Simulated assay, not measured.
Amino acid sequence: MAKALDEVRGDLVEDPRAGVPAGLATAAEGLVAEAVAVEVDIPDAASDGIRMSAGDFTLQIGLPHADTAGPSEHLPNGSTAYPSGTSSANAVIPTGDGVQLLSVITSADAAETFAYDLTMPAGHHLEATVDGGARIIDDEGVVKVEFEPAWAQDAAGVDVPTRYSVVGDTLTQTVDHREVAGVSYPVVADPLPVVVIVITAAALIVVAAAALGVATWIVVSWWNTCRAQNRYPQLSTIKGFTARCVR
């Protein structure tokens, strides 16, 4: 499995990183700023699922076909694999601001659908996005987690058609590896959830800039723009750096 991940071309497979500040909070007076790291719990048994948390937000992610997976194995690059006796297996990489979940498909006998059952706090729901990704938002419309658009690549570096579907709290990735002639196995496919930062106090600007790896003046500019609209800036490192104003 390590060889399959190492041979994925481009920057699609993330480098393992420890948690970085992502959930941000202040005391009621707004005088104390605290950065809350994203924590990722990767269990020994795939059937236990992956737990990702930041502050008071916790997301439990069930891995696809976990009932056929063996105990976890730690790969040389720092990721965790769940080998399987079937034609597909899971790999998990903590990314600092989230976690990368990879399906490694070893033959045409493997399934084409990979379902991730999500358990999230009350008042949150999963929805598809127009760019082919998905996101978790709360009842006020604030985005808490974003899933980047699906991708899949075969061993020759050729893209394999793939897409997400959302039914309730289940995100399913379909990989059409049987439908394409000449696919070179293994095929690696991925959903990547990232926790999103919402700044609710000026004292958090410097902390947010450090967490996102962007210049402080950029965060200040978004703070001023959003507060002029009586909103707050929502920032993330998805697709480089993205920002918008939310209530």
Rank of each mutant, 00 (worst) to 15 (best):
R17H: 13
A202G: 14
A122P: 15
C245M: 07
G62C: 03
E73S: 00
A203G: 13
I199Y: 05
N77Q: 05
A189Y: 13
A115I: 05
R178I: 03
I61K: 06
N224W: 08
L12T: 07
L12I: 12
A134M: 01
V206Y: 04
A155I: 03
D56F: 11
S53M: 06
Q153V: 14
R247K: 14
G23E: 08
T106E: 13
R163S: 10
D131Y: 09
E140Q: 13
L101E: 13
W222C: 01
A33N: 13
R17D: 14
T113W: 04
E179T: 10
A152G: 11
L118K: 07
V175A: 04
K144G: 11
H124M: 05
A203W: 00
V246H: 09
A4V: 02
A210G: 15
S103C: 04
D44A: 10
I238T: 03
V198H: 10
E140W: 04
A35I: 03
A108E: 15
V8Y: 08
S88V: 05
Q229L: 15
M52P: 02
G168P: 05
D131I: 10
L126R: 11
V166Y: 12
P149R: 04
Y116F: 15
F114Q: 07
I205H: 04
P193Q: 10
V219D: 02
V220Y: 08
S221T: 14
G62R: 02
P186T: 02
G49F: 10
T58F: 07
V214W: 12
L24N: 05
A202S: 14
E112R: 12
A4I: 01
A202E: 14
A134V: 03
D6R: 07
